[in-house]
Computed example of a mutant assay.
Amino acid sequence: MCVVCDPEKLDDAGCLGAPDLVVEILSPGDNKRELKNKYEVYEESGIKEYWVIHPSEQTLLIYTLVGGRYQSSRLFVSGDVVESSCIAGFKLNLEDIFEG
């Protein structure tokens, strides 16, 4: 999933330039090389935040672009409330997404 905050970046074909936020929900088939490649592409493209959700582990890691390089958050777990640095006022209680 990706989030674009600037409507000027959108046209009929999609997003012009990098989205502000990409959220990836890992599946059992995801491999480390694929994740590393995405991390590098997203960082180079200037995506402000990259969230990696691991459903079976019930964890979230947030990478935030600072000075052109990603800095990682601590590992968030079910029950933590996380906030986006690029979407003002957006908060997510991880317990809500890991229920079930």
Rank of each mutant, 00 (worst) to 15 (best):
M1C: 12
M1N: 08
M1K: 09
V3E: 00
V3S: 00
V4C: 14
V4F: 14
C5Q: 04
D6H: 11
D6C: 06
P7F: 06
K9I: 00
L10H: 08
D11I: 01
G14C: 09
G14E: 06
C15L: 08
G17Y: 10
G17Q: 08
G17R: 06
G17P: 14
D20K: 01
L21I: 06
L21M: 13
V22M: 01
V22Q: 00
V22T: 06
E24W: 07
I25G: 13
L26V: 15
D30T: 03
K32M: 10
R33W: 04
L35T: 10
L35P: 11
L35G: 04
K36P: 02
K36I: 04
N37K: 13
N37C: 08
N37M: 07
K38I: 10
K38V: 09
K38R: 12
Y39W: 09
V41D: 05
Y42P: 01
E43F: 04
E43L: 02
E44A: 13
E44K: 14
E44R: 13
G46F: 04
G46M: 05
I47N: 01
I47L: 02
K48M: 08
E49K: 03
E49S: 03
Y50Q: 03
Y50A: 00
V52R: 09
V52D: 06
I53A: 03
I53V: 05
H54D: 14
H54A: 12
H54P: 01
Q58D: 06
Q58T: 07
Q58K: 15
L60Q: 01
L60Y: 03
L60E: 00
L61E: 05
L61A: 05
I62D: 00
I62L: 03
Y63I: 01
Y63G: 01
Y63V: 02
T64M: 07
L65H: 04
G67S: 04
G67C: 02
G68P: 08
R69N: 11
Y70K: 03
Y70A: 02
Q71G: 09
S72G: 12
S73K: 02
R74M: 07
R74V: 02
L75C: 10
L75I: 06
L75T: 12
F76W: 12
G79K: 09
G79C: 11
G79Y: 07
G79F: 06
D80F: 12
D80Q: 03
V81W: 09
E83C: 14
S84T: 14
S85K: 15
C86W: 08
I87N: 02
A88P: 15
F90R: 11
F90T: 14
K91W: 13
K91N: 15
K91T: 15
L92H: 13
I97F: 13
F98M: 10
F98L: 07
E99R: 14
E99N: 11
